[in-house]
Design a protein around this nucleic acid. Structure first.
Length: 597
RNA sequence: GGCCCGGUAGUUCAGUUGGUUAGAACGCUAGCCUGUCACGCUAGAGGUCGUGGGUUCGAGUCCCAUCCGGGUCGCCA
């Protein structure tokens, strides 16, 4: 049987925070048993809580019945002990409390424990499946516990910054109207209105815009958002955003506030100086130079366009691609020739096919010898032009992709990151951030024969591009901006449309009839009749930001109860079939049987 | 939805060309041990090799299907 905690059992101090100043004092400690070391006539127990570990000692001075109890204590038992803090006869320099211990004279076993399915230790390497099934135990591990605690600190710093800058923390609804565009919504059936559904918000977008219209001027929220899309290492179906919106402000105003936030956060949390202003690239520049709208600036390998030099060249693959409107581009891996054997190059060639590139051409210059997969098809002049444009020097290797522009950008953009990873040249404690601006407002979908918003349909078009809305909508740039850190989209936002006319025009370009627009966003268009301040905002991914600051790549390590790749949660086994009576009440009939448990 | 990787003791893994009774480490149980701190020593228990089917004299190993986990492309306004 377990012992009971009483009012007298007050913890003196967290386990890991006991120090020399407690020596000689009679104290109370509580926690979990990390390990028991039974030396025969003396027993040591490491007692653990979120702060660390304190050693308990039971020896010939300990009462027999307490000693006998200590003897049967096992890992993860929960104890309340009292005793005198004393100096150890041998010191453990590896832990902060390594020079003291508690000589126990009172012991309560508050709870016993079965042997856990895996060891509760910092470095325990256990399959994610098992860890997540027993997440409550996984969360006892010091590293995960630290991540969750650090996340809390980051949130605290974030709140302080935005409160100090006049932002008002406002909660917006989690049961909202389904949105027709963008990511798939999670739907919640209505009991009162059969056949009708709420959606869980993908973001508080429209509400925060309406808050601007209501005059709150500066809003922020640590907002949970939901997207029913496939998971990735940096994507969970529910995730948290630092969401904000401001009135009477332009892009520069938002950038200034966010740069201030980043500077403050890195200074407060990492004691690291961020130099402002952050560099900026337009979307077009980022694509041309890095093949990505979220470039990682911690390494070079910029894209080089060879199309002009190879137009009409003897190598059909290159010439025909250019003639068809595509391009031939290269990256130069400086001093990388030795790192890429034939086998390695073959491996990269296979790898790049994931991005639909048909092949990967290369030339390397090693020991004064050129070796190349394509040079023999080109004239000396053409080859020289490539060497000159790519600045190919002794020890370098260049990789070339020829294809439609979007495939060249996707594949080379990914390749430069993959190579940086393989060469292990990325420093984990380096942070390179930038703004990417001037995104195209619209993207044409060949499949659906219509335009979709790149960002969302409330994004303000660039004033000087407005005339293209009627002639060539793909040319319209938007006043949208992403903040990118180490190749990761950390946050994104835009100046919003605050004019009913422009908003209606955008809906029209997106192919909504007036009736469609009224049905879907009528409340917004109505609201816009009543005096809208110009406004703009941004949302920062808190999970990604936290992982980044902690040097982690998997956001599941900063989320207490994350979901796995098929969007289920292994501990509670959700989602789960609903009770038939509940379904009836909701007016839902299933056309197929739910998965068996 | 496509492609790739993985699943063997409680855990992490090894397991050769298909061949006798499937191993190791840690953990666990018991005993011994007065200064350990990843304590040590001795002994022991522990396996439907993810699941189902097939090939074979014989399958952890080969084939097919399926489940679970991971990565990735699509997707993520």
């Amino acid at each position: 049987m377990s012992d009971l905690l009483t009012n007298n059992d007050r913890r003196t101090e967290y386990c890991g925070l006991f120090t020399n100043k407690y020596i000689g004092e009679h104290v109370c400690a509580v926690g979990w048993v990390q390990r028991q070391r039974d030396l025969g006539s003396i027993i040591f127990i490491d007692l653990r809580d979120r702060s660390g570990i304190i050693q308990l000692a039971f020896d010939d001075m300990t009462e027999t019945n307490i000693f006998d109890q200590a003897f049967r204590i096992r890992s993860e038992y929960v104890l309340c002990v009292k005793g005198v803090v004393r100096k150890r006869s041998s010191i453990n320099k590896n832990i902060p409390t390594g020079d003291i211990e508690i000589a126990v004279d009172e012991l309560k076993i508050l709870s016993v424990s079965e042997t856990p399915p895996f060891e509760i230790t910092e470095d325990s390497e256990v399959k994610p499946e098992l860890r997540l099934k027993h997440r409550y135990l996984d969360l006892r591990r010091p590293d995960l516990q630290r991540n969750i605690i650090e996340r809390s600190k980051i949130v605290q710093i974030t709140r302080k910054y935005f409160m100090d800058n006049g932002f008002i923390d406002i909660e917006t609804p989690n049961l909202i109207k389904p949105t027709p565009e963008g990511a798939r919504d999670y739907l919640v059936p209505s009991r009162v209105h059969h056949g009708c559904f709420y959606a869980l918000p993908q973001s508080p977008q429209l509400y925060k815009q309406l808050l601007m219209l209501s005059g709150f001027d500066r809003y922020f929220q640590i907002a949970r958002c939901y997207r029913d899309e496939d998971l990735r290492v940096d994507r969970q179906p529910e995730f948290t955003q630092i969401d904000l919106e401001m009135s009477f402000i332009t892009q520069e105003g938002v950038i200034e506030i966010i740069e201030g936030f980043v500077k403050y956060l890195f200074a407060e949390y990492k004691n690291m100086e961020i130099n402002l202003p952050l560099p900026r690239l337009t979307y077009t520049e980022a694509m041309e130079k890095y093949g990505s709208d979220k470039p990682d600036l911690r390494f070079g390998f910029e894209l080089i366009d060879l199309s002009d030099a190879l137009c009409g060249c003897g190598f059909k693959v290159f010439a025909e691609t250019i003639a068809a409107g595509g391009s031939v581009r290269a990256i130069n891996i400086k001093n990388g020739a030795e790192s890429f054997s034939r086998k390695e190059i073959t491996s990269l060639t296979d790898w790049i096919k994931t991005y639909k590139a048909k092949g990967l051409a290369y030339t390397k210059l090693s020991g004064g010898e050129y070796s190349s997969s394509y040079a023999k098809f080109l004239s000396d002049d053409e080859n020289s032009a490539i060497y000159e444009k790519t600045n190919l020097c002794e020890g370098d290797i260049i990789f070339i992709v020829a294809d439609k522009n979007n495939i060249v950008f996707d594949s080379l953009g990914a390749l430069r990151c993959e190579i940086a990873r393989r060469l292990n040249i990325i420093k984990n404690d380096e942070y390179k951030m930038l703004w990417v601006t001037d995104f195209p407002l619209l993207e044409y979908s060949e499949e659906d024969k219509r335009y979709y918003s790149t960002h969302h349909p409330f994004t303000m078009p660039c004033a000087e591009d407005l005339h293209y809305l009627d002639t060539d909508p793909s040319k319209v740039r938007s006043i949208a901006y992403d903040i990118v850190i180490n190749g990761m989209e950390a946050g994104g936002g835009s100046v919003r449309i605050h004019s009913q006319e422009i908003q209606s025009k955008i809906f029209e370009v997106l192919g909504f009839t007036k009736e469609d627009a009224d049905k879907k966003f009528g409340f917004l268009l109505d609201a816009f009749k009543y005096g809208v301040p110009p406004h703009a905002g941004l949302a920062f991914g808190l999970d990604r930001l936290t992982a980044l600051l902690l040097g982690l790549s998997d956001i599941r390590d900063v989320i207490a109860f994350p979901k796995v790749q098929n969007a289920s949660e292994l501990m509670t086994k959700c989602p789960a079939p609903a009770d038939p009576a509940t379904l009836t009440e909701l007016g839902i009939a299933l056309t197929e049987n739910p998965e068996e448990e």
